Amino acid sequence: MKRLLTFLLTLSISSFSLAPLTSHAKTIFPDRPLKLMVGYAPGGPADILARLVAQGMSAKLGQPVIVENRPGAASSIAAGAVANAPPDGYTLLWGPSTPMVMNPVLRTNLGYNPTQDFTQLGMIADMVLVLVANNSVEIQSLSDLITQSKANPKKFFYGTSGAGSAMNVAAEKLKFETGINMDHVPFNGSAPNLSALMGGDIQIASDLTVAVMPLILSGKIKPIAVMSAKRLEQLPNVPTVAETIPGFEFSTFQAVQAPANLPEPIKLKLEETLKAVVNTPEFKRKLIDLNFIPAYSDGASAQARIEKEIASYQIVAKQANIKID
């Protein structure tokens, strides 16, 4: 009997001493691979940047961060999948401006709410929009475009990569704030948009730096103005729109989200990991080389920016009667 009691006591003490270790083991995050869902096909600028971030996060977390491409419906398929995923930190979204801002402004029945269904982990970079012109057009500045378009209504047509795109909304915002008179011609992507510009089918185009930069540097089109707050390092001689229209700024962002209701310790770990990866001189250099602008901000700042931009772009979309469905 004495031996039995001694055995049970020993077992009880052993179990008690192991309990904290077992409990601690269950709280370790991450203990398996994470998934970063990207709503674009492989090979594009967003996908390339997402893979760089995933690689950096993998090294910091000690677990693979696997990029899963799920394109379609302007990234809303990927966004909806993450919004409905378990809030355990193992499913993340590469959520730039399109699914977070443009979709809720222009589309209905998304299947997710960008301001309620996600935990914002941080913004990484901005991609600037550029107003460019056909080389034969006698416009050298934004002031020239404003003056000539007012003097010759219906003379100018501007192209974008599609109706309801960020480039479309940016150009309409510019029209309302400057009085520029030009009509929109939507194309199915940047390539046909800029091809039409070079061919003279349109005089002006609004597009992303990653699309226009090679054509500008090769002299095939000319830049009129950039829509960033400051001049671009890659185009130091091209003025900003704000130099003519103070306060004007329009850019698209790249950010990372998790599902809503993410436990605070997991949120903090992912947020700190993301910051450690992207907020370094080496990574910022990579961003600039890819025609992005480094623009890290934490999750709370990302949430505030998204809410502000949705409210602002809703006004522009209503004024210009832009709606996808």
Score class of each variant (00 low, 15 high):
4 L>C: 02
4 L>S: 09
4 L>E: 11
7 F>H: 13
7 F>A: 15
13 I>V: 15
16 F>R: 13
25 A>L: 14
26 K>M: 11
27 T>E: 14
29 F>R: 08
30 P>L: 10
33 P>R: 09
34 L>F: 07
35 K>N: 14
36 L>Q: 06
39 G>N: 04
39 G>P: 00
41 A>Q: 14
43 G>V: 05
46 A>T: 12
46 A>G: 08
58 S>C: 07
59 A>F: 04
60 K>S: 14
66 I>R: 15
73 A>E: 12
89 G>K: 00
90 Y>T: 13
92 L>G: 11
94 W>C: 02
99 P>Q: 10
105 V>C: 06
107 R>C: 03
108 T>F: 01
112 Y>V: 05
112 Y>I: 04
114 P>F: 02
114 P>V: 07
116 Q>E: 15
120 Q>E: 12
121 L>G: 00
125 A>C: 06
127 M>W: 08
127 M>G: 07
129 L>K: 09
133 A>F: 00
134 N>A: 07
135 N>R: 15
136 S>I: 06
141 S>D: 09
143 S>P: 00
146 I>L: 08
148 Q>I: 09
151 A>W: 02
151 A>V: 06
151 A>R: 11
154 K>Y: 11
155 K>M: 14
161 S>V: 11
169 V>G: 00
173 K>P: 06
178 T>E: 10
179 G>C: 10
182 M>F: 06
183 D>H: 11
184 H>A: 11
186 P>L: 12
187 F>E: 03
187 F>Q: 02
188 N>P: 02
190 S>L: 11
190 S>V: 11
190 S>K: 04
194 L>H: 02
195 S>C: 03
196 A>C: 05
196 A>Y: 08
197 L>F: 09
197 L>E: 05
198 M>Y: 01
202 I>L: 09
202 I>R: 06
202 I>Y: 08
205 A>C: 07
206 S>G: 15
207 D>W: 07
209 T>W: 00
211 A>H: 08
216 I>V: 13
223 P>R: 05
224 I>M: 09
225 A>P: 02
227 M>H: 04
238 V>N: 01
254 Q>F: 05
256 V>M: 15
257 Q>L: 13
257 Q>A: 10
258 A>S: 13
264 E>K: 13
264 E>Y: 09
266 I>Q: 07
266 I>Y: 01
268 L>S: 13
268 L>H: 12
270 L>G: 03
275 K>I: 00
275 K>W: 00
276 A>K: 02
279 N>G: 05
287 L>T: 04
290 L>C: 09
292 F>V: 03
299 G>H: 08
303 Q>H: 09
306 I>E: 02
306 I>N: 01
313 Y>H: 11
314 Q>N: 15
314 Q>I: 05
325 D>H: 05
